[in-house]
Amino acid sequence: MQRLQTDTISDAVPDSALLVAVANGDAAATRVLIARLAPRLLAHASRVLNDRAEAEDVVQETLVRLWKIAPEWRQGEAKVSTWCFRVLVNLCTDRLRARKPAVDIDAIAEPAADLQSVVEKMTYVARRDALSAALNTLPDRQRQAVVLRHLEERSNPDIAEIMDIGVEAVESLVARGKRALGAALRGKRAELGYEDDQ
């Protein structure tokens, strides 16, 4: 069988076509899919779980499931990346539920106490840590929706498919999540360099 060469596979080749090649035993196609999917999956899992090792585990599990489903993949039913995010989001949810009970939205009306210690100076790292800490105060599904919408920049219909909910529910989760993040970070705008003499 003719094998695809990793360095000659065009960006125009869709993920679904690569998955067909995977089902036919083409290892080069797996390399391209890993290069395309793994960074985005890892970014999402890292932000949601806030734990690099756990994030790597769920990405690994997601891709193992993708290779297994390859022979039965039905063209045109779903985008490969959407399918992967759906698996990943569920795996992240399982991990978060195993850690602790979900946080009530009312519990984050005020900035979290540990946010004070996280944000110590107006630096790039401080901003990243502040956002990470604030995201961690959100209930699981709000956190996943906000990360998918504003960090992965996925469309609301896409997020709806990933999270298996309606588009209106996505809009609601994202809006509530952003309000909660804003409230959590409000007292820190000056420290983060976003203060407000406009």
């Binding site: 890292s46 920049e153 409000r186």
Partner: peptide
């Protein structure tokens, strides 16, 4: 004068921009 919500949104957008530029590498 900007409202708190507007300031929150601007600060959040700036944080999101920074975070997007800071994707973890494999």
């Amino acid at each position: 004068k900007m409202t708190n919500d507007t300031k929150d949104d601007l600060a959040l957008e700036a944080l999101f921009d920074s975070a997007r530029a800071d994707d973890p590498s494999l």
